[in-house]
Computed example of a mutant assay.
Amino acid sequence: MKPHRRLISPRRWTPPPAAPEHGGTDGTSRFRIARRLATGGHGPEDVIFDRQGGLLTGLADGSIVRLDPVTGARTVLGNTGGRPLGLEPCADASVLVCDHDRGLLRVGPDGSVRVLVDEVAGSPLTFTSNVVEGPDGTIWFTVSTRRWDLEHYLGDIIEHSCTGMLVRLDVDGTVTVLLDDLKFANGLVLAPDASHLLVAETGGYRVSRYWLTGHRAATVEPFADNLTGLPDNMSLGSDGLLWVSVAAPRNALLDKLLPLAGLWRILLWNLPEAVRPKPTPLAQVMAFDLDGRLVHDLRASDGSYSLVTSVAEHNGTVVAGSLHESDIVVLDLASHDS
């Protein structure tokens, strides 16, 4: 890991006022764990179903593993030699991997690891976050921050560095930055018709739509704005919904400090970790239809699971992963609290 950057350069931003909760009495249902799947390691930061219904994840030791969501049977597909984050299963049985340390990789069915992109615009590529592949082999991926590492990612949220990117890798190897200055770019989903991408900005509390085709190509519009928490990895379910993990709720103190001069955030960041304000414990996932309407908002604050960084759905099975946990959890959608 890189050394801890004690000096931050805060950027001002006025976040939108926190919106009222969606729907119902409090807008939420219970984040209820039906069962757990042991990964054999720690930190299943991203979880995604492959084309056969198997569950893929990457672990802190560099392993890429496949789990049977029913039996829990575990197969190690390879090891990146770094820290895998976002994954994308491919038609040829390879897996695209955003590796925090090594860049954008492809892990072959034989376990071989090939580096696809390790620099952008002449600078080493770090903190690649999530990735998707189009029908023609075009690849898009996000870079969360160019200033901070995974261990100290909260520094970017407090600083609000706006150094995230959306990047395209063409089949001929050309690398193009499509969007820059993103607020901690994170989850990434390609629309079923490949007309647009959905991009999560963790530090902006939003998901945006980036058009790839038509008269709006290369433009951005809001998809789900002013969220109640910090969106992380996302996936498109077999139910046609966009599933969004929420790593933490918005912090009222940070919202107050972001529009102010940076001194207060510098002081906050340099407090000893033991006394620095902690995120409110929360496990949360949301699901939207592709018009941006909220369908599910599942939450729990009982400590049963923490820092949900990914969620995926396949044939009615919903699973969640976490940077801080060792197990993947299967959620119970059949018995929501009213």
Rank of each mutant, 00 (worst) to 15 (best):
S123P: 00
L254Q: 07
N315V: 06
L323K: 04
D332T: 07
E313S: 02
T174V: 09
L188S: 14
V70D: 09
L230P: 00
R12C: 13
F288L: 01
L267F: 06
D149N: 14
L96Y: 04
S238A: 11
I158N: 07
D156H: 11
F49H: 12
V70Y: 04
K278T: 08
G187V: 12
G321E: 09
L150E: 15
L104C: 08
C162S: 15
S129H: 15
F31R: 09
H215E: 14
G137V: 08
T126C: 07
H42M: 08
L331C: 09
H324S: 12
P124M: 03
S9T: 13
L267M: 13
S161W: 07
T163N: 07
G173I: 10
L212G: 09
G204T: 02
G240K: 06
R102M: 09
S208G: 04
A334S: 15
M286L: 15
L271T: 06
V107C: 12
G240Y: 04
G62T: 14
H100E: 05
G72D: 03
D181T: 12
T75M: 10
R51P: 00
H152P: 02
P249W: 11
V107D: 03
G321L: 09
L7Q: 13
G316V: 07
T228L: 12
D156N: 15
P44F: 10
V117D: 11
L179Q: 13
P192W: 10
D50V: 02
D50E: 02
D110W: 10
L331T: 05
T145Q: 06
V244R: 06
L236V: 03
T57H: 03
S306Q: 14
G262H: 08
R265W: 01
T309H: 10
G122A: 02
V189F: 05
Y153D: 10
G137R: 11
P16Q: 14
P281W: 00
H324T: 14
I266K: 15
M165F: 07
V76P: 02
L169K: 10
P249E: 13
D26F: 03
V131W: 05
Q284C: 15
L254N: 06
A287D: 08
L59M: 06
V132R: 10
S208F: 06
D172K: 09
G316H: 06
L59P: 02
F184R: 04
C90Q: 13
R30P: 00
H336P: 14
G237L: 09
D289K: 03
L323D: 00
P10T: 01
